[in-house]
Design a protein around this nucleic acid. Structure first.
Lengths: 154, 154
DNA sequence: TTTCTACATTAGAATAGTTCTAATTATTAG
DNA sequence: CTAATAATTAGAACTATTCTAATGTAGAAA
């Protein structure tokens, strides 16, 4: 089970990171892939392909939805992006590669990242019989947020 | 966070359980709901609505797919069945109400239940800030199974 | 019992999200 | 420069699900 480090937050680093990850896989670094990656990582939320398409079009108006899907597939393959599936309907994409859980706010429909200590993750993974070789674990909470003075993310 | 006990394994108990859970909600116990529930609980796997439709038709050949969807929705509302979403594509339904995690076998595409000790679940839930009120937690492993002498479920 | 009302079922149409197809364009290797 | 490979694109096709509107059913009220 491996959890690559979260991308650098300086947006100019994203391209390097992308090229690096694409290198040696036979995959090319293209303007579309760069922009999709950069737009996704520039905001820490969980957009659908369609939402991302809308954001990306602001910078590259002629990009097609099919390309956004293709780029996302590539990024997922390279482990630069995670897919998260909190609801039926559209797949969502998560640029945060730190080990973390998700909390689906049933009131707002938003999904936010929740830090999860390495030892808790280890505990969770330890429940598996030895011959089960997990490559990843996903932890998803569903519930509501008590709104006293609540940060919307952490 | 509540984890209702797993249904009784004797198949004649399922109906009672269903009626009981439907009672007082304004929902009726119908032959279609009984059969969908009984067929789902008679096998501990994770069928799609379509797969379940095929099984149910053996006992009630004129039932419609729409009804299977409707019944499943009802059963989910009553907390008699859990939805599990391991892959893009069709939703899967899980009759096991014990607290448990899922292991998605990437080789076979099968999803199996993994017992998860209450204290580990408690550990996991403890990572949430106090104002996050979780109603459920889902834990999903993805990986492969080493095939020496491997039970296919536990 | 008959009637009323609310709920449930049904077939098929409609929808949403995604993947596929085939044509075009871009990039790299020789 | 040319050939080969990979990427992009628009739109068609597809899959899973939900919606619609008509019909059926069961319990409650009279």
């Amino acid at each position: 089970m491996s959890f690559p480090p979260f991308h650098m937050t300086a947006s100019n680093m994203n391209t390097d990171n992308l090229s690096h990850h694409l290198a040696g896989t036979g995959l090319r670094s293209t303007p579309q892939r760069e922009i999709v990656y950069s737009v996704l990582t520039s905001k820490r939320d969980h957009p659908t392909a369609d939402e991302l398409f809308a954001r990306v079009k602001q910078q590259m108006p002629n990009i097609s939805l099919a390309t956004v899907y293709n780029c996302l597939e590539t990024l997922v393959q390279c482990n630069l992006v995670r897919q998260v599936n909190v609801e039926r309907g559209a797949m969502r994409y998560c640029p945060n590669l730190h080990p973390h859980a998700h909390f689906f706010n049933e009131t707002t429909g938003e999904t936010i990242d929740v830090e999860i200590p390495a030892e808790v993750l280890a505990q969770v993974s330890s429940v598996l019989p030895k011959h089960f070789k997990a490559k990843s674990v996903e932890i998803l909470f569903r519930g509501v947020v008590d709104n006293q003075n609540t940060p919307t993310s952490l």
